[in-house]
């Protein structure tokens, strides 16, 4: 889902840099106010964790594999704005250090995976939680459904951006992106649910404070 250089129009890249930059400014201000210097090791190590977790492939069908994104996991653990910062860090380092995702497309990639995947993913989680109920199963369902939705939504937004730039027609790029990611999203959901229930069992204090209130 990392958009390389040259696939999106200049206007769209600039707009995405503006939006992602504005969200980053708000998120960083809030992170500085909330927990102060303790935030640096926590967010830094979480970003390193998401990076490492993305290297562990999960099986999809008959030997093919996908990899984890981790945006909803980060937002359930740390809250939406901190999850955005984590995704911002992961994507910037992947871009600058490993040439994964283009530099001119960085704003868009941060928008797709940080804003759509992390922040919108978090509010989808809260919305589903309100309906599914705060029992153990309802909670797991909300985590899983939000993870799946975050992947499908982020990949569809990515397809729209490529189509809007005139690189490829929407009727080709949207079904292929959304179709593949509908499947990868299942893996994301299974993994996020098992990670969150493992953490809830072993270290419930690590879940985002609103989350632990929701569970109580």
């Amino acid at each position: 889902m990392h958009i390389p250089d040259g696939f999106v129009s200049t206007e769209l890249s600039v707009a995405a840099f503006a939006i992602s930059g504005a969200v980053a400014a708000v998120a960083l201000k809030k992170a500085g106010k909330d927990l102060g210097e303790k935030q640096v090791p926590l967010l830094g190590v979480t970003a390193a964790f998401v990076f490492a977790a993305q290297m562990i492939n999960f099986p999809v069908l008959g030997g093919t594999s996908g990899h984890f994104m981790g945006a909803v996991l980060a937002s359930v653990m740390l809250g939406p704005l901190n999850a955005f910062i984590v995704m911002l860090l992961v994507l910037s380092i992947q871009c600058l250090g490993f040439a994964d995702g283009g530099l001119t497309a960085l704003g868009l990639n941060v928008f797709n995976m940080g804003v759509v995947g992390g922040i919108i993913g978090y509010y989808m989680f809260r919305g589903i939680l309100a309906v599914s109920g705060k029992s153990k199963n309802g909670y797991a369902f909300a985590v899983g459904a939000a993870s799946w939705l975050s992947i499908v939504l982020a990949s569809s937004v990515c397809a729209f951006e490529i189509a809007l730039s005139g690189t490829a027609p929407l009727k080709v790029v949207l079904p292929s992106m959304a179709g593949v990611h509908a499947l990868i999203g299942v893996g994301e959901a299974v993994i996020t649910v098992s990670v969150v229930s493992l953490v809830a069992g072993v270290r419930p204090d690590m879940l985002h404070k609103q989350m632990s209130e929701a569970r109580a």
Binding site: T46, V186, I191, S194, L198, R203, M206
Partner: peptide
């Protein structure tokens, strides 16, 4: 692992990795 329903194993691995990271 060959099939998507075996992803739970990867979930537990990533969970342990998360706890160790924290």
């Amino acid at each position: 692992g060959r099939w998507i329903w075996q992803s739970g194993v990867v979930g537990n691995m990533i969970g342990s990795l998360l706890l160790r990271s924290f």
